[in-house]
């Protein structure tokens, strides 16, 4: 397959298929995330990059034999390893009988919310989730460090004019999208608050929220979107999300318990857990949404800069 566009679309389909596999395996939360992230955000980012780098691949393939050797060897070791694995779906495998039963049997009493995945994620293993938020934050900062471009106001005027004329062509799509966006945002809020009871939570909500903004940006142009959502405001929200999450931990520490021990946040332990989970889910949602938007803006901004440079070059070339 030499056409990178096809490759990226196939990757998206692969993600979507694995998401449906996750549903079949009863991992609804994971499926939700994989569909939003793997099939949604990362496919989108790859498409943006392809428009900047060209969509065809050169034919040469280097070191195919070495690669094949490595792959066959690694695969062989893995297959060898599978022979002593517990079989698929067996209920008394060690994985189901050591740590997990407590989550299943006690979480209602200890945390008080029905979605066990959320209880484990936000309370038993809250620190992993904190790490995850920091990973996303790091990626956002990293992308910004690599791609951010200083903006000059006088250029903005020109690009706005170009964008406006360009987007009048897609009138139907623009109107339909405008109608859809409020619903997407509402749905994001629903997912944010419903995470305790069904699949969902801060992470998925953040991605959906970001998707709405990205959709808006794609149709109305980057400059318009930047007028609505200012760059430094997004950065502020991203940092605030991480800080909010961390502060929940620090507050419980100041109340005399360990970091992330939500029991002490309210007079009743279960109420404390509720409050803690609610707050950290907000932290996750804020950081994820703003970092996703930040990443997309940086990619799109870079692309715009490249196009402007090309235009300038062309004009200079013509005048010569």
């Amino acid at each position: 397959m030499k056409d990178l566009f096809a490759v990226v679309m196939l990757l998206g389909i692969y993600s979507l298929l694995s998401a449906s596999f996750f549903v079949a395996m009863d991992a609804v939360d994971v499926a939700f995330t994989e569909a939003a992230v793997g099939a949604g955000i990362s496919t989108l980012l790859m498409l943006v990059v392809i428009t900047m780098t060209g969509r065809s691949e050169k034919t040469t393939r280097h070191k195919p034999w070495l690669a094949l050797l490595v792959v066959v060897f690694t695969g062989g070791v893995l297959i060898y390893g599978t022979f002593d694995m517990p079989y698929f779906g067996i209920a008394d495998a060690p994985i189901h009988s050591h740590v997990a039963p407590r989550y299943i049997n006690e979480s209602m009493k200890e945390i008080g919310i029905p979605n066990i995945v959320t209880s484990v994620l936000a309370s038993y293993r809250a620190f992993d989730t904190f790490g995850e938020v920091v990973v996303i934050f790091t990626a956002g900062i990293g992308v910004m460090a690599l791609l951010s471009v200083g903006r000059r106001p006088e250029e903005d005027e020109k690009t706005t004019a170009i964008n406006d004329s360009m987007h009048e062509e897609y009138l139907v799509i623009r109107i339909v999208t405008k109608m859809l966006i409020p619903f997407i945002l509402l749905y994001a809020l629903y997912v944010q608050f419903h995470g305790d009871f069904g699949p969902g939570g801060g992470f998925q909500a953040g991605v959906i929220f970001a998707a709405a903004i990205i959709l808006y940006t794609m149709l109305f142009g980057l400059t318009t979107a930047r007028k609505v959502i200012n760059q430094s405001f997004i950065q502020f929200i991203a940092a605030a999300g991480v800080l909010l999450y961390g502060c929940v931990g620090i507050v419980s520490m100041l109340n005399g318990a360990n970091f992330f021990d939500y029991n002490v946040l309210a007079s009743d332990p279960v109420a404390g857990q509720h409050l803690g989970i609610l707050l950290i889910e907000w932290g996750v949602g804020c950081t994820v949404a703003s970092v996703m938007i930040m990443i997309f803006f940086n990619f799109a901004g870079r692309r715009e800069m490249q196009q402007n440079n090309e235009k300038v070059n062309n004009i200079e070339g013509d005048s010569l």
């Binding site: 395996m25 995945v117 992993d128 790490g131």
Partner: peptide
């Protein structure tokens, strides 16, 4: 189903 791997994979 075991919830723990789900949590790990979300991360």
């Amino acid at each position: 189903s075991n919830p723990l791997p789900h949590v790990l994979i979300l991360t």
